[in-house]
Simulated scan of single mutants.
Amino acid sequence: MRDELTDSATFQVVVSPLDNVAGIPTKALATEFKALFESVLLLHRHPRTLIQLVIQTTSKPPTATPTVNLSLNRGGSATASEEEQQKHRAPLLLGPDAPFTFAEIAVSINASTLALIDAVRRLTFSVLVDPSPEEERVAHSCHVYAFAFSGYNPMNPADAESELAAQLVYYASAGGTSAKQRAELFTVAEESSKQQLGYLRDALRTQDV
């Protein structure tokens, strides 16, 4: 709740090493990825939601043995140049301080992009009929439908539902929705209104009695 934003989604990036704890290079890469994807994601379309991207390298090629340039001394034995010797005396950073290879960074960007695209493609939503004030406050979007029904035959109540024809006479909404979502919402609202109509008829019959 403390990270909830009223005008956009909260976006978090976690880079999780497979065999070590997160060090400075890991946290730095997570910060860079967060800035990268925030520049292209439409976070304003998903207020009060959390998008969390977790990146983890599961395998990588083994570290190659460096090739040292050798030269022959006067005695004929092979020796490394002083420059090469000095370079390879530098300590190899391991564990949390090991830097990411450029290949790992590129693969992480590609995998993250595909994961975010797949998440959007699989995005589902729940529809609440007659929500509470608290549910309405945190909802992604709110809608009101009103229908005029015709075709009801009181002489044949068994087929009343199949004979009903609904006509939309009022609609109000707030929040962003896609065309597909609006079509699904219309179907839910129409079915719910039919159920409410049946409840009202039963209540009126009871009152008349």
Rank of each mutant, 00 (worst) to 15 (best):
A106Q: 13
F37W: 14
I55A: 10
L94W: 06
T57R: 12
V68Q: 01
H88E: 06
A35S: 11
L94F: 11
V138C: 12
S39P: 04
L92M: 12
S141Q: 03
H143K: 09
V40C: 06
P61G: 09
V54T: 15
P96V: 10
P99T: 02
F37G: 01
E84I: 06
I105H: 03
A78K: 11
A111G: 13
A35V: 02
L43K: 05
A78R: 15
R45L: 07
S77Q: 15
R89A: 05
P133R: 01
N110P: 00
S59G: 09
E135Q: 15
S71C: 12
R45I: 03
L114T: 09
P66F: 02
F102P: 10
K60P: 01
T67G: 02
A146D: 09
E83G: 00
K60C: 00
V68R: 14
V54R: 11
H140F: 03
E136K: 09
S59W: 12
A35N: 09
P61S: 02
K34M: 07
L50N: 04
F147I: 04
H143P: 03
V107W: 01
T79I: 15
L128N: 14
Q85F: 07
G76N: 09
L42Q: 00
K60Y: 02
D97C: 04
R48T: 02
E135A: 14
T63L: 13
F37I: 09
L70N: 04
I51T: 08
V68T: 11
T49Q: 05
G75V: 15
I109W: 01
L92V: 15
H44W: 12
R89M: 13
R122H: 07
A90K: 11
E135F: 12
N69M: 10
A106N: 11
T57E: 11
E84C: 03
P62C: 00
T57L: 12
A103M: 08
